[in-house]
Amino acid sequence: MNNADDLSVREQAARELLARYVRVVDDPDRVEEWPDLFADQAEYRVVTRENLEAGLPISVVCDDTKDRIMDRVTVIREFWGAGGRLEDRHYNQVRPRHVVGPVWTEPQEDGTVRVVANFVVWGTPTTDPAPRLLALGEYRDVVEFTARGPRFRSKWVVLDTPVLQDVFVYPL
């Protein structure tokens, strides 16, 4: 396989990882699969553009290790899941829907692929007549190729809105 083919294969694999990611985070029953989309050393950050551009270190979510990424599942299922009484908690019943694209990919010299994509996340609650805008912004990701296949080394979720429109439960 020549170099150009290898590049396009890696870019295609990075796009497929992003598509898989969206399938997982859109499905409240699959959040357990979410950490495996990340490499063993990885970060997941949700930041507002406002803080980012002001150089302020506070993030909305700062999962800067794989441990914290795995802990997020425990927080969603156990802390916010009311010890299994999920039906008590209507915020867990807001079904997220990611709309992602276009997707830009840029192969890097170190073998990773940078992925940048616009996203909008809508939430449809079971209780409300209208869906809600949960989040709006841009993914800035780095995909690396591990023995297990392509995985996120880093996923930055940059929110355009300085004010969060709602609280969100599942990963963006």
Partner: peptide
């Protein structure tokens, strides 16, 4: 402090989101 604050006492914090609901 940067790692702890929003993870506990922010809108996505482990013990804050329930109040919103």
């Amino acid at each position: 402090r940067v790692r702890q604050g929003p993870a506990v006492l922010g809108p996505a914090g482990a013990i804050t989101l329930e109040d919103a609901a």
